[in-house]
């Protein structure tokens, strides 16, 4: 199986605080790798480093065999190959749903507006949001907003998706519509890297789960192994706490 993303020995520090250390993993095509770990363990920083929103301090990141962490890599070109969705404040509040989706295709990819609009409407229709095309984001529920954010990243035909805790700012009742969209994309063969707190969801979509603890990957493996019979005390401890929080 060919690898889309390869991360080797990546390190990232903010000043003297080391946030990521010796991070290595691979994401084969059509698979999903899920990062779990407590808040502050470095999940967001890792995704931001991969998308070149942060500069790494050591290591190599390659996308389809090309080193994107190279100094001469074209940052804007690289970012178009990733579809990134954040926890919150994703959409541009001054633009309609349709304008949110077509902005980057028109300006970053140079697609004709008519074509960008047609493609956007097609995506919206596919995910049941066509009637929201002319609405502003503040008229949408949180779940609809996150779905539009995912669609917006799909409009760039990304090589893979980077999803950073896309449901943690949502009401529990809205989480499912977003997760089911991600599941659909997974079954369509989209390659993805996710950070999530939803262990049930991780079990469903992940091909591999990595447990991030204080900036290091402590344990990794198939979801049924790592989530059901973790080996390390840190992993057990984290999963127990997530479980308890879920029961509250």
């Amino acid at each position: 199986m060919s690898e889309v993303l390869v991360v080797e020995k990546v390190r990232k520090a903010f000043g003297s605080e080391v946030v990521l250390e010796d991070i290595s993993f691979r994401v084969p095509v059509h698979t999903a790798t899920v990062f779990i770990g407590s808040s502050g363990s470095g999940k967001s920083t890792l995704l931001r480093c991969i998308n070149l929103l942060e500069q790494i301090d050591d290591g190599i990141i390659t996308l389809d065999g090309q080193e994107i962490s190279a100094v001469e890599a074209n940052v804007d070109e690289v970012r178009k190959k990733f579809g990134m969705v954040f926890q919150a404040f994703n959409l541009f509040p001054h633009k309609t749903v349709l304008e949110n989706i077509t902005l980057a295709p028109i300006h970053a990819r140079g697609i004709e507006p008519e074509q960008a609009i047609a493609e956007a409407l097609e995506l919206l229709a596919r995910f049941g949001l066509k009637d929201k095309a002319e609405q502003y984001p503040d008229r949408l529920s949180g779940g609809q907003q996150q779905r539009v954010a995912i669609i917006r990243s799909l409009a760039l035909h990304p090589r893979m998706l980077l999803l950073d805790e896309i449901t943690s700012a949502l009401d529990p009742v809205l989480v499912n519509e977003v997760l089911s969209l991600v599941r659909d994309l997974k079954s369509d063969g989209m390659t993805m890297l996710l950070a999530t707190h939803e262990m049930g969801f991780a079990k469903q979509v992940a091909d591999e789960v990595c447990f991030l603890h204080k900036g290091r990957i402590l344990e990794w493996g198939a979801p049924e192994d790592l989530l059901e019979s973790p080996k390390l005390p840190e992993t057990k401890d984290f999963l127990r706490r997530v479980h308890e929080a879920g029961r509250l």
Partner: peptide
Amino acid sequence: SQRAAARSLGLTHFQ
């Protein structure tokens, strides 16, 4: 995060 969202879509600094 608005800037991050825009940059992650491949828009340049000026865009």
